[in-house]
């Protein structure tokens, strides 16, 4: 399936990644050749094969609900690009 510039633009919107026109052209070509390589998988008959999401047969992993100290709030907030009054500061959410 050939990839179009529109696909790249739509995907970059889904991924929240701004791309320049130059990048769009570059990634269009590169992703097309990678996807073409990946189409190799269509040679495989997987009709009765179960998909694997994980190599371990893990069931739910539970632990006791005990109160433990967490990391210091100021230390965490100090890593934020912007903070105010003990909160992360972001641009207006409702425009």
């Amino acid at each position: 399936m050939p990839l179009s510039k529109k696909d790249i633009e739509y995907t970059s919107t889904l991924a929240h990644v701004q791309l320049s026109e130059k990048e769009k052209t570059l990634y269009l070509g590169q992703l097309e050749s990678i996807l073409k390589y990946i189409e190799k998988l269509n040679e495989l008959d997987t009709t009765n094969v179960l998909p694997m999401d994980h190599v371990l047969d893990l069931e739910n992993v539970f632990r006791k609900d005990e109160i433990k100290p967490s990391v210091n709030r100021d230390q965490v907030l100090n890593q934020a690009p912007k903070q105010q009054d003990g909160f992360f500061l972001v641009p207006p959410v409702i425009e």
């Binding site: 970059s12 990644v17 701004q18 791309l19 990048e23 570059l26 992703l31």
Partner: peptide
């Protein structure tokens, strides 16, 4: 802000893989 931050902050291979 999200889009610009990620567009400027990630390098080419990371962007390529996120897109893929």
């Amino acid at each position: 802000m999200y889009k610009e931050t990620r567009g400027q902050g990630f390098g080419p291979e990371v962007k390529r893989r996120i897109l893929l």
